[in-house]
Write a protein that binds this DNA or RNA. Structure first.
Lengths: 104, 104
DNA sequence: AAGTCAGATAAGTGTATGCTTATATGTTCT
DNA sequence: AGAACATATAAGCATACACTTATCTGACTT
């Protein structure tokens, strides 16, 4: 099951922070570390997990590696969530509307 | 952070299966175990985790405990997902495919 | 009241996970 | 070519996690 990687990847708060940073704008691994009190290998390992979960993708830029959000992972979560549409509370009707709109 | 519990709870495939079963209809812990090759304590522990993540809630029914989906947990995921709405349109095709797949 | 049943909790154990330090790979600069 | 830099990988370690068996609590039954 592929969902597994996505949820596992997001189960770690540090990885969610990294993802959030990337969502605000792509950047390389060193830039990501700024203000995060995390070692270089740890960051590299986290990025590897996020990449495997299709939450993030990389692009070599010379000696840097630029990381950016990969919508694929988000789509997987949306897909999982959609299965339980029946239980979505009114409060997130906007989300449902958006999915429906895309479905047309 | 509350997201933490939700994603951690869903990071385990067994718990996702349990949740899925409950989404199809509320039932007690014993009924949940049917066809699942899981010990009674393990089930109880999983339900405890799901409950803590607000993905599930319980209702005492005499000597049974009926479990059902708690939309609160789903709302948390939807809320998290909504923050990255900006990235959805980039892969509308994937979302559409997922939705179509689900509708059958 | 005693027995039985549903479920929770306790304690122990093997494995997974996230970190560390050390080293390797690959790219740019002089 | 060699130094400097960005990132990845290796190996080791402490903690978290999912499971097990044993026991406990609370509710129905006779």
């Amino acid at each position: 099951m592929i969902d597994n990687d996505v949820f596992k990847a997001l189960a770690d708060p540090t990885r969610r922070t990294i993802f959030e940073k990337l969502a605000a704008g792509s950047m390389n691994a060193s830039a990501l570390r700024e203000g995060m009190d995390i070692s270089q290998p740890a960051m590299s390992q986290h990025l590897s997990v996020l990449r495997n979960a299709n939450l993030v993708r990389e692009e070599r830029k010379g000696r840097f590696v630029n990381y950016e959000v990969n919508p694929e992972g988000l789509a997987q979560i949306a897909g999982w969530l959609a299965k339980y549409r029946a239980y979505w509370p009114a409060r997130i009707d906007a989300l449902r509307a958006l999915l429906k709109e895309m479905d047309q």
